[in-house]
């Protein structure tokens, strides 16, 4: 009897661990990650902004920030919006709107625009002058805004 119970519990334990492993990171973790990713994007933006608005233009800083943004943009952020993360709490309650997860969501297109402008910014940062970096930085920010208007709740 005792042995049957022990085996049974072992089986249940193994099965549930396997199930957990299959389902990947917890929704809470995914939401935390995506919120963190966006915070890093904001950090990069701040660094670029300081250089395109000030009198000094430190290319090294700009290149670092632009490369980081481009890398993040092309890192598959979509995976952080997996099913099951429509609602929930990461660092705070998610601000993603339900429409982002809907079948007719345009989030893929918006994310692609974002990746495109981020990649372009990294290219220009390497060689362009302050004015062209500034112009491209504006274009990039417009893609952030476009997605926030559609899919990020205002509060």
């Amino acid at each position: 009897m005792k042995r049957t119970l022990a085996i049974a519990s072992l089986v249940v334990l193994t099965a549930s661990t396997a199930a957990l492993a299959q389902s990947g990171p917890k929704p809470e973790q995914l939401i935390k990650w995506r919120q963190s990713v966006f915070q890093v994007l904001a950090w990069n933006g701040q660094r670029i902004k300081a250089n395109v608005e000030g009198t000094t233009f430190n290319r090294e800083d700009v290149v670092k920030a632009a490369n980081s943004t481009a890398a993040i943009a092309n890192s598959g952020i979509g995976a952080l919006f997996a099913p099951g993360t429509e609602t929930g709490k990461g660092w705070h309650d998610t601000a993603a709107k339900a429409e982002l997860f809907a079948a007719d969501s345009k989030v893929g297109t918006l994310a692609a625009n974002f990746s495109q402008e981020a990649t372009e910014l990294a290219r220009i940062a390497a060689s362009g002058d302050q004015a062209s970096v500034k112009a491209q930085f504006g274009k990039l920010n417009q893609t952030c805004k476009a997605c926030h208007d559609e899919y990020k709740a205002k509060d």
Binding site: F137, G138, K139, N141, Q142, T143, C144, K145, D149
Partner: peptide
Amino acid sequence: FVSGEVGGAWI
């Protein structure tokens, strides 16, 4: 109104 709605680069 216009620049607020567009936002982003227009902010």
